[in-house]
Amino acid sequence: MARILVCDDSAFMRMMLKRQLIEDGHEIVGEAGDGKQAVQMYLQLRPDVTTMDITMPGMDGIQAVKHIHEEDPLARIIMVTALGQRAIITDALKAGASDFIIKPFEPQQVKATIDKILSEGVRE
C-alpha cells in the first residue's frame, strides 16, 4: 500500500483516479486542484507517490514537479495527461517525473504504473 497525493484541476478526474487507487489498496493522503497547492501539499504530506496532471491553472504540473524535485530529489511523481504529445511528456520526465499515464486511463494501466514506481524503490 502506498500513500498517494492526487493532483488534478478536474474534481471528476481526481474522483476517478482516487476510486481506482483505493480499489488497488492504496491510501489517498490528499488532493490538490492546482500546481501551487500540489507543491504545498507534497511538502506537508510527503506521500510515497504523487499523481500530477500537466494542464492546471496557475502553476502547471511540470512547474510543480520542478519545485517538488528542488525540495525532494527522490520524489516519485506520475504525470497524468490527456495530451499525447511526446514533447510535453519529455519535458515532464526531464523535470523529474518518474512515469506517466495517458487519460482516459485504463485501470490496469494505473495499477501497473504505480506498482512499477513502487517496485523501483528509491530512484537514483
Results as ranks from 00 to 15, higher is better:
I54T: 04
M15C: 10
M59T: 10
D60T: 06
R19T: 15
M15T: 14
E70G: 08
I54A: 06
A2H: 13
A38Y: 02
A11E: 15
S10T: 11
I62F: 00
K18I: 08
L17N: 10
Q20R: 13
L21H: 13
L17K: 03
L17W: 12
V29S: 11
Q85Y: 04
R3T: 14
D53M: 06
A2Q: 02
R86N: 07
M41Q: 15
L43R: 13
H67Y: 11
M52W: 07
G35M: 01
L74M: 12
A38K: 00
R19F: 14
Q44I: 02
G58Y: 03
K18C: 15
G25Q: 12
V29N: 12
T51W: 04
L43A: 10
E23G: 09
M16T: 14
A64P: 08
L45W: 04
L43T: 05
Q37A: 15
D34S: 01
M16S: 14
F12S: 14
A38D: 14
Q37I: 13
I54V: 15
P47R: 00
V29A: 04
S10N: 11
D24I: 02
E31M: 09
M52A: 08
A75Q: 07
M15P: 04
Q63A: 13
R14C: 12
H67K: 12
I88D: 08
M59Q: 09
P47C: 06
T50D: 04
L21E: 14
R76Q: 12
E70I: 09
E70M: 10
D48H: 11
G84C: 06
E31W: 01
D48L: 06
A87L: 03
G35A: 04
P73F: 06
Q40D: 15
I68G: 09
G58A: 07
D24V: 01
A92S: 11
D9N: 14
D34W: 01
E71R: 10
M56L: 03
D24N: 15
T50M: 13
R19K: 15
A87H: 06
A11G: 11
A64I: 08
D72L: 04
R86L: 12
M59V: 12
T51D: 00
A38M: 05
C7T: 15
Y42Q: 04
L5N: 09
K18S: 15
I68F: 11
Q40F: 08
T90W: 00
Q63R: 01
I68C: 09
E31R: 00
T55G: 03
A32E: 06
R19E: 15
G30A: 09
Q40G: 10
G25S: 11
I77D: 10
M13C: 04
L83P: 00
I78K: 00
H69V: 11
P47Y: 07
V65T: 15
M16D: 00
D34T: 00
V65D: 00
A38P: 03
D8N: 10
I68T: 08
M13T: 14
M41V: 03
H67T: 05
I4L: 12
P73G: 02
P47E: 07
R46E: 09
P47S: 04
M79S: 07
K36R: 14
D34R: 00
Q63D: 12
G61H: 09
R19W: 12
D9F: 11
I22H: 05
P47N: 05
A38I: 03
K66M: 13
G61R: 09
T90D: 03
D72V: 10
Q37T: 13
